[in-house]
Amino acid sequence: MTSALAEGYTATMNRHATLSLKVNGDEREVAFAPHKTLLEVLREDLALTGTKHGCELGECGACAVLVDGRPVLSCLMLALECEGADVRTIEGMQEGAQLHPLQAAFADLGAAQCGYCTPAMLLTAKALLDDKPSATRDEIRASLSGVLCRCTGYLQIFDAVERAARILAARDREDHV
């Protein structure tokens, strides 16, 4: 792949690039118009429409996904830049048929109203708790500051992240017993 990239891709709509990446744990090979961002490839070429868009300019955060475990804006990342990346979208957040504790807490505490920013909020919160399992409310607030929500006023989202953190911590303790 190195040489192909080094020689240059011509990003026209009619010619397709292909790349290999990991999406929600699965190795995927995807062909796409090379000018597309990761957002467009996820939604249009991989049919993963759980990733939303509200501006496509990096101004709302609705398109956040995890790339190599870190929350990034898929609307600003050219898909070509994702060769070999490990991408996680909302479709890959559940633990089998079970909701991830964050998803369950969001569902139970009113943290999802219209649900449109919810995938971005959930993935961002997951990255936070993966990194800081006992994040404080200020840390939760700061880490979610890149995703706008117009329905909830955020407070029930903070509550849900805190509840999920407690559940994950309890589960962690059980695992170590």
Binding site: T49, M93, Q94, F106, A107, D108
Partner: peptide, 23 residues
């Protein structure tokens, strides 16, 4: 009584389909 709303699961799993998700 506090209760999980009926459409919550679809919204936290990305399964809720919005107009631009339709193809």
């Amino acid at each position: 009584k506090a209760r999980r709303r009926v459409d919550a699961r679809a919204k936290v799993t990305g399964q809720a389909r919005f107009a631009d998700d339709l193809v």
